[in-house]
Write a protein that binds this DNA or RNA. Structure first.
Lengths: 227, 227
DNA sequence: AAATATTTTTAGGTGAACCTAAAAAGAAGT
DNA sequence: ACTTCTTTTTAGGTTCACCTAAAAATATTT
């Protein structure tokens, strides 16, 4: 008698809350505080308290007053569906409509809420079942399963080691534009030439020909697969 | 100081009202009653009265109490933008994602509200600047301009005359499925073989080989270009 | 022209998703 | 342990888009 997530209906706001909780909880691993949700969604804690009760009633989170929230398996499944749609639309926007990778997030935020399972699956098929979005984030399949290969932050790489860029932080368009400018893209081959002791910044060699300094902060947001 | 329509923001509900008013007014030709809007949108007249005031304040309709509403040029421009998006998405769904023509309306109703002028224009480009949607409805261009060729309802055709199907009513999925079944599609060549006096139904010859009877009601919803 | 019927508006209310301000619970510092 | 600070919840309010019921304006009939 307990309905599955795709037999239920969720508002845009509800979907955005679940997405935020899913991310803040590290894909469901840790519990999430009211304040952190309010922060993430640019709302006030009082609004979050309201919404949390609704989501708990719908069975997508567990909630005990003052104890933070945990996402349920139902909630995970909903979050993964929305994330799947978001990332598929991003692929569409970049590969088919020729948007740049720093332009697609905002539009995908709207498209991810379009309700039609058949649309999602047909879009997936049209795009050739992509495994990652334009920033290298993995795309959950129809059943919400995600395969994530081994990867580590550029800042964790040892001096002299090499890797291929597999993912970059997608939350800041300015950062993505900066990556464009210095020639970093998904698939770029990067060698960590030198680590500057003083501030942790790195000297990179990109695609075996271009020397480039990046801050440790930037390096943290570039993930590579080691060779 | 008066803002143009694309400098303003409209809710889904507001956009749906303007679309309804635009259609009911025959593209702005006649004024529209409160009841007819309520009818079209499955709401109550009282709700329409509320919304009408808001839309009048935004300058997309003219409104004097008890006198019905007229759409302004600003309103037309908004309606045409939404219709443009709706029809472009329908083309995408049918041509790229291989949906059937009776499946796309509902999904396009959601997609038409996605806000991003660049998205619309890039989609248009991706689709090759289509002139009509899968049901033959003309697609307004970027500036809201629509070219409509001469066409008439099948039921207006004389016995023995021929034409090409250029448009069909898209509001009823069952009707579209019926057209599929009897072999009528955009571009089909149709000869009106005989008109039955008694009920106005027609005997057609479709693509020079298939005889088919259709009711006058169905014939009214099939538009052809005469040879 | 008056009476009746229809249409439209107003008045007041609901739920969703937000808000501020105040109260309550929990965590931290001494 | 007790005071202080922080976090969270509650209480009560707002706007949006809807609703019902009643009142007002317009249309139609006789």
């Amino acid at each position: 008698m307990n309905k599955t997530v795709d037999e239920m209906s969720f508002s845009f706001a509800e979907e955005n809350y679940i997405k935020a909780i899913f991310h803040l909880s590290n894909w469901g691993e840790i519990s999430v505080s009211t304040n952190s949700i309010a922060d993430q969604l640019n709302t006030k804690p009082a609004s979050v308290s309201d919404m949390i009760k609704k989501l708990a009633n719908k069975g997508v989170i567990n909630y005990r007053k003052y104890q933070g929230v945990e996402i349920t398996s139902k909630g995970k499944s909903l979050a993964l569906q929305v994330i799947r749609k978001h990332r598929l639309w991003e692929v569409f926007l970049v590969e088919k409509l020729r948007f740049k990778w720093d332009e697609v997030h905002e539009i995908a935020e709207q498209l991810e809420h379009v309700k039609s399972p058949r649309l999602t699956d047909k879009l997936d098929e049209f795009l050739g079942y992509p495994k990652v979005d334009p920033h290298g984030d993995p795309i959950p399949n129809k059943n919400g399963e995600v395969k994530v290969g081994p990867k580590l932050g550029l800042s964790q790489m040892e001096e002299g080691s090499q890797g291929t860029v597999v993912q970059v932080d997608d939350s800041n368009p300015a950062f993505l534009k900066y990556l464009d400018k210095i020639g970093i893209y998904i698939g770029a081959r990067i060698k960590v030439n030198e680590r500057v002791e003083f501030d942790g910044s790195l000297e990179l060699i990109i695609d075996n020909n271009q020397k480039q300094f990046v801050s440790s902060e930037a390096a943290n947001n570039i993930l590579v697969a080691k060779e």
